[in-house]
Design a protein around this nucleic acid. Structure first.
Lengths: 196, 196, 196, 196
DNA sequence: ACGTGCGGGACACCCCGTTAAT
DNA sequence: ATTAACGGGGTGTCCCGCACGT
């Protein structure tokens, strides 16, 4: 059965498997065995590509964070179209999907993982920092377009916005998420910011 | 040596021990063994007073949440004194202390615990809901006193405020918390809400 | 299923199980799991009573060696009865049974075990030293009775005798041992020693 | 690529590497990986030349045994020179060097290996049989020269002698071997055999 | 009712012998 | 011939829950 072929995309496969496990079993179900089993890969593969399990998790978070630039640029491209609240609601809901939420739970639960990420992370909570940045960039763009009040403080609005949505999503019970609630929240935040 | 003497305050002792463990070892260190060891109590004691470990954790969260009414009334009593942002900063920083943050990490990590709390909790995230309510009540009181803009939406401001602080505190690395940052955040939120 | 009762004879049960495993699967089959499974005992029991597996093995060898005093005194009691070669053949064959041989293989194979035993063992190979001592004591007793040549050097004959038998038994292939071969060897050795 | 590297050369390299590993790490350190790493060749090379690892080990023992004919003829050539005990001490000490002892530990520990060698080996323990034969031939030669008692039983003395030395060497703790002890043992055995 | 130790399972990490693809 | 994966196993550790004996 051994396939001597190098799994060039071993990282990708393992990351993908880990996300599926997170979706299916939640953060507490994400064990090294669950990952390799889900990936259909030998146990040793994970330890060949990563120093230990926490190292793998750190890589997973990094990978996920890096991939956030795609929705970030997509959101930026939407500046001027649709509605600000709507654009934000869709983008943030997607960025803070179940997988990302599970990863955040993982990071806040596993001290060792958090400390390891601390060493290589610029600042802020791993995934949250990226999403906050994404929102800030978008808000600034809309501000230039005049769709957000000129005196709104994007640097303050962004974490508030993400913090609110994060709490909203953390309250999920497995039921389908409610983008409408997110949109309403966005509108409320923006209303207070765009109020004359 | 078995004493046979009933630990009438077993719950209290276990809860206190659990909080000390959370402070010392973080959420991932909170195991049933750690709790009983810290409490200086036999392992079986926990199992005699609670159906299982998740049941104990649920009780712990409930206990902690119930005790939040003390700072809630204290905060309410401060209405009209000091500054709104200052009062909020102190109260929220204390309410979202390391122990509460660790409990939140626990709840978001342990699916079983979250589902169990779901059944007995009115609504929202266990501890967060109480804190949000506390803030809302205070904001309404200040609104009546005219120290918060009459058109501010306390129902929307409160979760935003707590969401922001939660993210800020979740980013901690063990260093002493920064109440100043919380106060600044409060001021920012309130400023946007009190703007004409 | 858990029986909270302390296994007072945990050591004995584990040692007995280890010997059965050695008989059935040979030295290479003696793993910690095999021992606990064979003993019908939880895995943790072994590690509760011994620091690690090598520590358990050292205890096993010690226990086995300590029990050799029974056949030693029994052999000594036979002095003057039967034939010298016959008495020796029976005693040595029994002392160097399959279990003892497997333990010797274990000791010579596992460097860590050998070094650990080295620290607590008076001198010589763990089990061999005891058996050699047993033979020497018996030969001296027979010498006093005049059934062994007065000028025979028991201190030299004993290791020679055990060395020969050890090699003979090490050559086993699983077939029933041949006490006759041992007896013949004994007679040869004694003949050379009792020759005038 | 036609490298011209002969198959037998690979065997030699692997065998040499295995012996170095045995010297350095003992019998328990002799794994297929350790061999190929030490030889500086790929893992697959071993399995290209041998059916499996036990097959390689069998080949190793065979190779080592076959090379024993050199010291055997050398010892035989010493008949009549020096002292009998001295000649034997040197030859046996060398033949039962650390590598040979480690191989014997390997054979007695690995049941599968022992059974495999059983099928292709004339009789007796793989290396021991050769060494015993070497001693016997030498003793017979000395007997013809009159330096060993005519009524000495070389067929019985040889295994006794090797058995004794084997035990003596098995007791090693890594310290430099003691040829003097071997020589004393030889003298003792021969004395008992040449006694009138 | 408490103190203690076991049951049983899981986990991380590691190593081994082996084989398929490059 | 080289490489890396593979499946299996082993060890030590933990954890939760439980049933004894005190």
């Amino acid at each position: 059965m051994p396939t001597g072929v190098s799994l060039r995309d071993a990282d990708e496969r393992l990351f993908g498997a880990a996300e599926r496990v997170l979706l299916r079993d939640g953060p507490s179900g994400l064990t090294s065995r669950a990952v390799t089993d889900e990936a259909g890969v030998a146990k040793g593969v994970l330890h060949r590509h990563f120093a230990d399990f926490d190292d793998f998790l750190a890589g997973l978070v990094h990978d996920r964070a890096a991939r956030l630039d795609v929705p970030a640029t997509a959101l930026l491209a939407l500046a001027g179209t649709g509605t600000v609240a709507g654009n934000l609601a869709v983008a943030v809901t997607e960025a803070l999907g179940p997988v990302a939420m599970a990863m955040l739970a993982l990071v806040t639960f596993r001290d060792e993982l958090r400390h390891r990420l601390r060493e290589t992370w610029p600042a802020g909570l791993p995934l949250i920092a990226e999403i906050v940045g994404m929102v800030r960039a978008y808000l600034l763009a809309e501000q230039e377009l005049g769709r957000v009040a000129a005196d709104a403080d994007a640097g303050m609005l962004s974490p508030m916005l993400i913090g609110s949505v994060h709490l909203l999503l953390a309250d999920r019970t497995g039921e389908p998420p409610v983008p409408d609630a997110v949109r309403a929240l966005m509108e409320g935040v923006l209303a207070s910011a765009t109020r004359r």
